[in-house]
Design a protein around this nucleic acid. Structure first.
Length: 188
DNA sequence: CTACTGATTGTTTTG
DNA sequence: CAAAACAATCAGTAG
């Protein structure tokens, strides 16, 4: 299966990576980001789960994480903050360990995902509460992270376009880096 | 060697 | 407002 020839948008965004090895002048498409194609295919009929699950996800991950890029252009912005983990993901972090203990031999992320999702739905909102609370916190950190990131981008290279121009006013915002956030107030 | 795949749901983002 | 994209994970797979 290598000729779906379907490209919607540049798959390169976050991780940047995406194999744009197609420096071809013609610029036809990349044959592989099935990530999006998946939706396209499954959208039609789903015999497995009827409940809903209409949406699938796409994944892309630069293995090089933030440290090693390589020849091409993999990580454009190593400091680019990633989206905050949702409550579900926070719960998953724990769940993964649990699942790992129960199934040390399992190597499929899908298995854990399914199991986690199933349990997540099974949990009451009360149980999810702690996770949600944490998720909200992550969001705040993300915003803070983004703020710093934006600043960095503005300061570093000559950002001329694309910088959310604040039209106006004097927004002298002095956010000196690193504010020691209190962090952690437990209350369960 | 490096990027992608699988699968989950929730949030962030973009159109 | 709605749909898309992407967040972690881990080992395997393909180019």
């Amino acid at each position: 299966m290598s000729h779906w020839t379907l490209v919607e948008r540049e798959t390169a965004h976050t991780g940047g990576s995406q194999s744009l090895k197609w420096g071809g002048e013609g610029g036809i498409d990349v044959f592989s980001p099935m990530t999006k194609i998946r939706r396209f295919i499954m959208k039609g009929g789903k015999s497995k789960s009827d409940t809903k699950s209409a949406k699938l996800s796409v994944n892309k991950k630069p293995t090089t994480k933030a440290g090693g890029r390589k020849s091409g252009k993999a990580a454009k912005d190593p400091n680019k903050p990633k989206r905050p983990a949702s409550a579900f993901f926070v719960f998953m972090e724990e769940f993964r360990e649990s699942y790992k203990k129960d199934h040390p031999k399992n190597k499929s992320v899908a298995a854990v995902g399914k199991a986690g999702g199933d349990k997540w739905k099974s949990m009451s909102e009360a149980e999810k509460a702690p996770y949600v609370a944490k998720a909200e916190k992550r969001k705040v950190e993300y915003e803070k992270n983004m703020k710093a990131y934006n600043k960095r981008q503005a300061e570093g290279p000559q950002a001329d376009d694309e910088v959310e121009s604040e039209k106006s006013v004097s927004e002298v915002n002095d956010e000196d880096d690193e504010d020691g956030s209190g962090e952690e107030d437990d209350d369960e």
